[in-house]
Amino acid sequence: MTTDEPRPTGPTGPATPAVGPGTPAADRIGRTIGEAAPTTAVDVPVRGLVAVGTGIWALALVLTLVVPALHEGDRSWWPWSCVTGIALGGFAWWYVGRGRGSAADA
């Protein structure tokens, strides 16, 4: 580029906003908001999931207590994490066992 040539000052084409009223993105968003098909709740065996999670924490506790390298030194807190997971799993088992409608009354 020589000094006689003008320097480019911006985009070569007209500036078009990426998002804003009248842009394709805004039109596409406006069509999708509020037009979703109605959904139904999926029946999930929650108590079974809680039992599996609590069982995994119990297995992790046994493993950390059996392997000395997993509960000595800087890792002395690991068994307590497992105990906390088991305790929270017990609470979840009780809470889920109350039934679906009970939470609304709480």
Rank of each mutant, 00 (worst) to 15 (best):
M1C: 09
T2D: 13
T2L: 11
T3N: 15
T3D: 15
T3L: 15
D4F: 04
D4A: 05
P6M: 09
R7M: 08
P8W: 10
T9V: 15
T12C: 08
T12S: 15
T12R: 14
P14I: 12
P14E: 14
T16P: 04
A18G: 07
V19P: 04
V19F: 15
G20Q: 11
T23D: 06
A26F: 02
A26W: 03
R28D: 05
G30H: 05
G34V: 02
G34T: 02
E35Q: 05
P38I: 02
T40K: 06
T40L: 06
T40E: 13
A41P: 07
V42E: 15
V42C: 12
V42P: 06
D43A: 14
P45L: 05
P45W: 06
R47S: 09
R47C: 03
G48Q: 13
V50Q: 06
V52H: 13
G53F: 12
G53H: 10
T54Y: 07
T54P: 07
W57H: 15
L61H: 13
V62N: 04
L63Q: 14
L63D: 15
L65H: 08
L70W: 12
H71E: 06
H71N: 15
E72P: 07
E72C: 09
G73P: 10
R75Y: 09
R75W: 08
W77N: 08
W80A: 06
W80V: 05
S81T: 09
V83N: 05
A87R: 09
A87P: 12
A87K: 08
L88A: 11
G89P: 10
G89Q: 12
G90M: 11
F91N: 01
F91L: 11
W93M: 03
W94R: 04
Y95D: 00
Y95W: 02
V96C: 04
R98F: 00
R100C: 00
R100M: 01
R100K: 03
G101A: 00
G101Q: 01
S102I: 00
D105C: 00
D105M: 00
D105Q: 02
